[in-house]
Design a protein around this nucleic acid. Structure first.
Lengths: 119, 119
DNA sequence: CGGTATCCTCTCTGATACTG
DNA sequence: CAGTATCAGAGAGGATACCG
């Protein structure tokens, strides 16, 4: 598991890993990703699909996801300034990793609660 | 990317994913995992191998990793109460996912800084 | 050596009101 | 509709001192 690289390279790997976690970390990023995944594209639609989220947190989280190029914000000025959020191709490539993380998390839950098959 | 399951199941998947992130999230978990990976087993050795960490945070983080069964705490009462931390077999199975996350994080860094091949 | 206890700070999140 | 501004609370993390 532990690669045999020099110290500087490993520090950079740890940072890479922390970045990976940061991008989808926090309280709302994953529910938002899921909501867009389900077909919601507009700010208010996304907000209503996630119980408990405020405009403030939705706005901030969308901006961070956009900064990380996982979603794009499309403004259509012709049709009364409709704004839509969509996944980037890049985000779709992230999908497999997310599914792996889900699988690990589900198994982990069983392990911790003592109903697991492993350990 | 988005599975076609019912709502309750998806909520549980999102929770599973948030758990996955939480287990290795925070400021010190990954450096600690790396330090043990490199062969450090004792509290003080781990502490000295991670610049800036305090006893308090090391203690808390080790306890959380132990609660999540990624490491075990072995007390040897015969030899002046030596205490050693080690990975569980379970943690080693986590390794592949961590490597995938590192790879994504490294590529992500290139994408965000504009030097990436993707996007 | 391997921790705990206490206090403090700083960031993240929530509530609410306002805006083009 | 799609946000921004402001303020307040909760929680993560840091500094330091103490303990078996």
């Amino acid at each position: 598991m532990c690669p045999k690289e020099n110290a500087a390279q490993i520090q950079s790997q740890i940072r890479a890993l922390q970045d990976t976690i940061y991008v989808i970390g926090g309280k709302w990023k994953l529910p938002i990703i899921h909501s867009i995944c389900k077909g919601n594209k507009r700010f208010t639609d996304i907000q209503h699909s996630i119980p408990g989220i405020t405009k403030r947190m939705l706005s901030r989280s969308l901006k961070e996801l956009e900064d990380n190029k996982l979603i794009v914000r499309n403004v259509d000025p012709d049709f009364t300034a409709t704004i839509e959020y969509e996944f980037t191709q890049y985000a779709l490539e992230y999908g497999k990793l997310i599914l792996d993380m889900i699988r690990w998390g589900e198994n982990h839950h069983k392990v911790i609660t003592g109903k697991g098959t492993k350990r």
